[in-house]
Amino acid sequence: MRKLLPGIILLIFLSACAPKQAALPILGNREPITKTVDGKTVTDTAYATIPDFKFVNQYADTITAKNLNGKIYVADFFFTTCPSICPVMHRNMLNVYKEFKDDDNFRIISHTIDPKYDTIPVLKRYADKMGITGNSWWLLHGNKGDTYNIAKSYLQTVQEKNPAGQFIHDGFFILIDKQKRIRGTYEGTDPKEVEKLIADIKILKAEPEQAASK
């Protein structure tokens, strides 16, 4: 027992020093808001949030921001005939899907930037071939202008066509919390970044503010 004691003490010290899980940052524009509370002037911070939207998913169900209330979600932009980065992105996104598909408070939304070709039946077929079932991963179809506008609020740039006639888009996965704030951006083509995304989703889920909000 005597011999064990120093070891035990060391263990206690070590466990006390274990680094605390870092909280995720809140990204995007922020503005100070000055309010008067109980006669005192208080300055608060307003964070950028994802505005309301209306799109249709692969099951032809209308999806608005309300459908994502109380959910942590990941968003990205793609199109089904994309020859370059989309297959890599969705190969990686599949890992996110598999990890969280049984969690009803989590969603993945993928906006098509080519709504003319990617009609709802095309999106459904894509989902089937990807092996996506249920409601945890929505492929969203919408008016092109709406999609390109919402991309901006996710800090993404989408261009219709480059001189070679191809769509250009960022390959990022954007992590959104239950308050619709941006909490992380991840290079969707990099498996290591996507591993970090999965880890960050777990951290985010454990945040008291997230766990409490419905």
Binding site: P83, I85, P87, H90, R91, L94, Y126, K129, M130, G131
Partner: peptide, 15 residues
């Protein structure tokens, strides 16, 4: 590699 994968594994039933 983007489509067929680093190990030639393809992508689900798509590729």
């Amino acid at each position: 590699e983007n489509c067929h994968g680093a190990k030639g594994e393809g992508l689900q039933a798509l590729i």
